[in-house]
Computed example of a mutant assay.
Amino acid sequence: MNYTLHQLQVYLKIVETKSITKAAIELFLTQPAVSIQFKNFQGQFDIPLIEVVGKQVYITDFGNEIAEMAERIILEVYAINYKTLTYKGILSGRLKLAIVSTGKYIMPYFLSDFLQKHTSIELTMDVTNKSKVIDSLEKNEVDFGLVSVLPDDLNVEEEVLLENHLYLVGNKKSDYNKGPYQRSIFNEISMIYREQGSGTRAVMEKFFETRKLQVRKKLELTSNEAVKQAVLAGLGYSIMPLIGIHTELETGELRVIPVSGLPVKSAWRLIWRKGKKFSPVAQAFLNDIRENKTRILKNNFEWVNRF
């Protein structure tokens, strides 16, 4: 056997993406370069690592076992590098986060100063929906998750970062520009929903169910950004977190429509598995948030209180 660390990294990316093309894109390499590296790696085994059916890549059972061992090897290499830096008094390692899609408007502000102070830390942040965040925590794939709705069936601890206010929102051409309106407004307008598994969707549906409101669902979209663009285009209305529409509210492209019972309030929470043993990097990050949260909120999120 004469495989290289680069070959292991390329193979792991193929396993992760189930595609040589996607692996090439994520590794910033050309597709031929990835194909050559994989061919050289596969050439050291008599058993196929992958099978290609049509254009779809499938990982064989043997390939999955090799991937697990390859990942352990790569992690040990990282550990060597981190240990070296630790002996020099430099905080280093990986910080792994999974955050709900709307969290991308929040999390960078809690990461910026920390990562600037500790330049040897590598950040991995998966921006997804609530269901996948919880799944990543359950599988212990990440240090922290960021959600606005706590999971029902996972024992977690939390650090509240910021209040989450959700309002009914329409575009600048909306006929509803006075108010406040009664909840009967929802009988008149078409609503745009997030997908199943979204925390925003869960909060919105709970609001409708507890008040026994009949709502016309016009569209279902898979990200806060997609919902925002649909509302901007005049395709309907939605109950949205303020945090993701700051610019559009300031420019007047979107407007908050005051309705009795709104806003719905929850909170953005950094969560982790109860009893989780933190790495030095994860513990340092949590300590940094607790020490600097008040300053971060004052400098970046005071505008929320105007609504």
Rank of each mutant, 00 (worst) to 15 (best):
D152R: 12
K139L: 15
K117A: 12
I192W: 04
Y237T: 06
L168G: 06
V149A: 03
V231M: 07
V52D: 01
I121T: 04
V304I: 15
P48L: 05
I50N: 02
A23H: 02
P180D: 08
V256G: 04
V160I: 13
K173Q: 13
V142Y: 05
F45E: 08
L49M: 12
K104S: 14
S136V: 00
K117M: 14
Y176S: 08
G275S: 10
H165W: 13
S19K: 01
I134H: 00
R306D: 10
I189N: 07
S19H: 08
I245A: 06
S279Q: 08
N299G: 03
T210M: 12
V215G: 09
F62V: 06
A24V: 03
I189L: 12
V15F: 00
F38M: 13
G234Y: 07
E205H: 07
N2T: 05
P180W: 03
E291L: 13
F186V: 03
Q9F: 00
L150C: 09
Q7R: 05
K274Q: 15
P48A: 11
R183Q: 15
L232K: 13
K228A: 05
A98Y: 02
V231K: 01
K55E: 14
L5A: 09
I36T: 11
G234W: 05
M107R: 05
M107Y: 05
